[in-house]
Design a protein around this nucleic acid. Sequence first.
DNA 1: CGTTATGTACACCGCCCTGTGTGCTTACGG
DNA 2: CCGTAAGCACACAGGGCGGTGTACATAACG
Lengths: 203, 203
Amino acid sequence: MTELEKGPQGRRRGRGARERILSASQQLFREQGINRTGMDELCAVAQVSKRTAYQHFTGKDELVAEYLRRFDPSVLSGVFDRTDLTPRERLLAAFDIPPTTPLCPYIAAAVELHDPQHPASQYARDYKKAVAARLADTAREAGAADPEQLGEQLALLIDGAAARTRVLNADAFPAAAAIAAVLIDNAIPAAASDDRRREEVSS
Amino acid sequence: MTELEKGPQGRRRGRGARERILSASQQLFREQGINRTGMDELCAVAQVSKRTAYQHFTGKDELVAEYLRRFDPSVLSGVFDRTDLTPRERLLAAFDIPPTTPLCPYIAAAVELHDPQHPASQYARDYKKAVAARLADTAREAGAADPEQLGEQLALLIDGAAARTRVLNADAFPAAAAIAAVLIDNAIPAAASDDRRREEVSS
DNA sequence: CGTTATGTACACCGCCCTGTGTGCTTACGG
DNA sequence: CCGTAAGCACACAGGGCGGTGTACATAACG
């Protein structure tokens, strides 16, 4: 069974309306933005009656918050759990984002909602902090002198690349990865021999 | 060329309704966002009748675009024209933003409008490119080996700090400035303190 | 089987949004 | 001083939005 533990109480009945709603949220909120996606349209895409949607979520705000919570597996955990890479490679792999990503949805949500008290905004903050923390962990693993600082710096680079990609409509992650390589090599006292002084690859 | 060609005919009469509208736009669009600011509210703040607003601007879209065009003096030109600073100091001064700034309005507009074809989005792109170009000019003046690359990198840092400041609700510009200092010193062949990378001396 | 949670179909409400139509007042400049 | 353009007050249209009420269908599980 696909759905096991979703709601406030463990419901295992039903035929997956909630999942369809969240799946449609992923698609539409990312493609069109949150504010420009109406509940009517969302329910149509999810093939769910509007009534059902409002039985699963008290309002659009709650749906948005849950939409953000259901996001991380695609980016965050997919990178940090790769044991086939060295810590340094894992740090750089965080910048290898597939071009399918319009914009980091957390930034988009924080800008669109425009309310720091909104549950989704709060979760976006938590998520960003968590990413920086995991980057810091990996940086520590890589032997960085100041892992927290390096993690924060790399997180800033990722966000900068995301924002700039959106505004300029051009991929800015390679440039960010180049900066990251410099910062990483600067932060690790005695780096590995072969990849320490490589050329900047991006133009 | 301040106000010669605004309306259907060049009029220098009137008591400044257009300026009040744009001024109110600056305030409200930044404080509340574009989508969350209605024309009614905007006209009330501007002390302008709605009819007058729509005689100056064909629609909200045009007003938004003009609002963005009227923005740069506060940040861009204020930094690059300072002759009392060395080029290197000017590059770093771009990260000294007053805490009055909620978020770079160009990023906000691009995210909120969510349409790359929107005039305001296009202008945001142009502006970001212009900033990167001016950063590159200053980088060249400072003697950077690859001024275009450094300019693009610094622009990315600025955008990253802006986005991260918004999401985390905490000032991220100091961290960005720290990264910038590293990049600048790495990019300038004969830097003040260290000479870690003296491979080629061009220009 | 029947009960009950789950989902459906569809109309509907009230609100706010962008944008107009109309008639009136003000102020500038010749 | 008078004409004319700028601005104003106000109502309203048209539509999309979030959200609900009601009556009905269906699937799961005892």
